[in-house]
Design a protein around this nucleic acid. Structure first.
Length: 157
DNA sequence: GCCAACGTTGGC
DNA sequence: GCCAACGTTGGC
């Protein structure tokens, strides 16, 4: 089975890559995803050992800030079942769960984040949803080529 | 804080 | 099934 590559958005004032570094086992449940397209990627495509870029959104400098790895396969997002959770969804039940999560583990933090501006300026990345106008997808697949292209951008001076 | 773009809901 | 209204996302 080949490795899949992803990009995960997170708002750093809610959960940043530094929060992940400080978390137990440097791991976290990627819960709270409430978008069907993103849900389907979690449920149907993500698997252990896949790699993901960690992206900071809704912040002064939106950027890819590091890499995480999927370390636990798809499981039910329990926050949807908890009335006290801000992510509670009464339409999700244990018998018929609607929302799912994976667990990701910290791998690497970039010395210098790759900013959205830089990503937008790279002609080889014009096709990725992240840089497209109005894109709101919080989990998106990347080709191996996209992944390598972005990784190479960390080696710039 | 603004607002364009998007996804979801619900009336019909 | 259409589509207007609404709530949310997220760059700026």
């Amino acid at each position: 089975m080949t490795t899949n590559y992803w990009l995960l958005k997170s708002e750093p004032h809610t959960f940043s890559i530094d929060d992940l570094i400080k978390a137990p086992n440097q791991s976290t449940r990627w819960d709270g995803v409430r978008n069907y397209q993103a849900r389907n990627y979690i449920r149907d495509k993500m698997k252990v050992n896949d790699f993901c870029f960690f992206y900071h959104s809704s912040c002064p400098v939106p950027a890819i800030v590091g890499i995480v790895e999927i370390t636990q396969p798809c499981h039910i997002d329990e926050t949807a079942l908890n009335p006290k959770s801000e992510y509670f969804d009464p339409q999700s039940t244990p018998q018929n769960p609607r929302w799912f999560q994976v667990t990701v583990t910290f791998k690497q933090k970039f010395e210098k984040p790759i900013t959205l501006t830089e990503l937008k300026n790279n002609p080889n990345l014009k096709h990725i949803p992240l840089v497209q106008r109005g894109s709101r997808l919080s989990i998106m697949p990347l080709s191996h080529q996209d992944w390598q292209c972005i990784l190479n951008m960390t080696k710039r001076t």
